[in-house]
Design a protein around this nucleic acid. Structure first.
Lengths: 363, 363
DNA sequence: CTCGGAGCTGACAACGTTGTCCAGGCTCTA
DNA sequence: TAGAGCCTGGACAACGTTGTCAGCTCCGAG
């Protein structure tokens, strides 16, 4: 008996019973937020009138409005958006799932998405997948459970069929940086292939023939595309590629370092390195800084201070902010109903020469 | 008559009526998500049984559970968390308001907060204030309207009395990096004063007496504290400070550049500069790189590649991730009820010597 | 003086979920 | 075999808001 009604009478009686305590606490802390009903009572008006004032709807006398405002002020009322969402269907929030906020590449991207969201009156809910497909799915579904109006996803996995019910239900979705797997969805990418190809061609144009490539796992779309760009540039120049010149799936600094050192020594040492992403580039810069023989370097992704190093680091730059902005704008186009069929948008990259990519081969 | 049921039958009839159209649109897109009722109907069970299965509550036969799971699968049902929140009171989400996600200092901080939130099963909703107090307030209140369980705020403004109703209602709140204004709240800071004092003392120990300071507006707490550290170190060493050696409120690269150039020329040029934050430091590095006469430099905040520059940049480092982690943990302590009185936590800074701060004065 | 209309206001249902409580069927024991 | 007790399932209210609709008052025109 006591057990059955325990939950209800808890706020009054002070009988902490095991894990009910936390709950009791919550009730005590959250239960007492004023609602529109409270405001209405205090202002001596109807519930709906409060709603009208809060939402700036017309049809309220100046005097009534003032009374309501005063009650709101006095009680510290804030509209409960959960209830509002439940009623209206729209949440005015969008979800962003990215790989790692601590990566400097994603800061500006995230910021750009937020700016666009803000311009459309939406809040941003975000999370990091840490490059783990399961975690990505967990996050995305959690966001869907919140009924976000739309999703911007930098995918970690390569199978997104779990999103089918959401797409059918009309959740706007845009993938960024990497394409969606197994489903037809909007996607905004950089021209990874073209950028890498041009970067490698740049090295070839400066006389290099033995060029190394250090990149991420080819299961990551961007990494695969950049590798393809490297191979294409080499093939276009008629240069056969030796296996020992390419190192894939290498991410942590230790292994990048070893990979770089290996291709710089041996029988046929490379005279130039193409680095597949900013983290690799930075590590390679460190390795090269320790060596006396100059080695040319072009990196994919720009990074701060690249120009201040000696020599400045030549990079294939992609515009992270523009990626984010484009994706977010497509998202809101979907929500407006403007955009109906999924499209693939590819943004150009830009080669920025700063010195390291223009070093001649030191044979 | 038609009017009454109009909202309901909208998906079928195609009778757009003025601004109903948008609503109709929304209804068409969002209205048709399956609910527990739908699942129950399909599985041939009661509504509450579905709820039980979805929430893993006991008291459901294996067979019934299977039938429900199949229905969920078939319909692509996802629980609507808005309704859940409305019912339960807790949202399992926390808000993070920071200054600018594109600033590399905030990436790791944000990431750390997210990790802690995740460990507690909470989602993170975030937004940038862009250093604008009004925008900060707007964001914070929007988050409160979503009924976030707690708030981590990097304040832009210096008056947070608008949060009083929320605090009273039990919204857990922690301020990071800068203290709250006009209210008594938890706050996690770096030892800005001590760090700056030690950094300047380091320069003095290496023989400098004419030391410049370039920092942000003193209305920003961190900037004021760092300035105080600079002044204290100078005073402790018995060095009178000339006005022209300190430049405040300077943020954009152009003006930092001019400020640096001014203190480096003139009758009493400085032989060393203390830079008040990472953005200033980077700009000063650029200015110094153009000069032949070596000038010592210590910067507040570490940044990537500081060690690779020539010379390496000596910095007073604060641990952004640790700030975020500490703040988030305090937040959840508040939510657990473990933590009851607001406290001020100050994290130590660390001087990292890399060369630029050990240059002797070139008189 | 009455009637119609316009402008305000409030009662009520509904949004999708969860907590409470009750009913019915089962097992187990005396 | 009857009764007690347990297990499973469902009906119902409530969370706080908004859309709908009806009622009220007040004004001016007829």
């Amino acid at each position: 008996m006591d057990n059955r009604t325990g939950h209800r009478i808890v706020p009054e009686t002070a009988a902490p019973r095991g894990d009910r305590l936390a709950e009791r606490h919550a009730a005590a802390r959250y239960g007492n937020r004023p609602t529109m009903k409270d405001v209405a009572a205090r202002a001596g008006v109807g519930l709906k009138t409060v709603s009208r004032v809060v939402n700036g709807e017309p049809g309220v006398t100046a005097d009534t409005e003032r009374r309501v405002q005063e009650a709101i002020e006095a009680l510290g009322f804030r509209r409960n958006d959960s209830a509002r969402v439940l009623r209206k269907g729209r949440t005015a929030s969008i979800g962003l799932v990215l790989e790692d906020l601590a990566d400097p590449f994603y800061g500006p991207l995230s910021r750009a998405v937020e700016e666009v969201a803000r311009a459309h009156g939406a809040l941003l809910i975000n999370g990091s997948s840490a490059e783990d497909p399961d975690r990505e799915q967990e996050l995305v579904l959690a966001l869907c459970a919140r009924r976000v109006d739309g999703l911007v996803v930098i995918p970690a996995g390569d199978d997104h069929r779990y999103l089918e019910p959401e797409l059918r239900a009309g959740v706007a979705t845009v993938f960024v940086d990497r394409p969606a797997g197994q489903i037809d969805a909007d996607v905004v990418l950089s021209d990874n292939f073209g950028g890498a190809r041009d970067g490698v061609a740049h090295l070839i144009a400066h006389g290099h023939r033995r060029i190394g490539f250090i990149g991420d796992m080819p299961r990551i779309h961007t990494a695969a595309e950049r590798l393809r760009g490297y191979r294409t540039a080499m093939a276009d120049a008629g240069i056969p590629v030796t296996d020992s010149w390419t190192s894939l799936g290498v991410t942590d600094p230790q292994r990048v370092r070893r990979a770089a050192e290996e291709m710089l020594s041996g029988a046929e040492p490379v005279t130039a390195i193409f680095a597949g992403n900013n983290r690799v580039t930075v590590t390679v810069v460190r390795v090269l800084a320790e060596r006396s023989r100059p080695v040319a370097l072009v990196g994919f992704d720009d990074f701060e201070l690249a120009d201040l190093l000696q020599p400045g680091v030549t990079v294939v730059a992609q515009d992270a902010a523009q990626l984010g902005r484009t994706a977010a704008e497509r998202l809101f186009s979907q929500l407006d109903g403007t955009l109906l069929t999924p499209e693939r948008t590819e943004l150009p990259t830009r080669l920025i020469t700063r010195g390291s990519g223009e070093l001649p081969p030191a044979d």
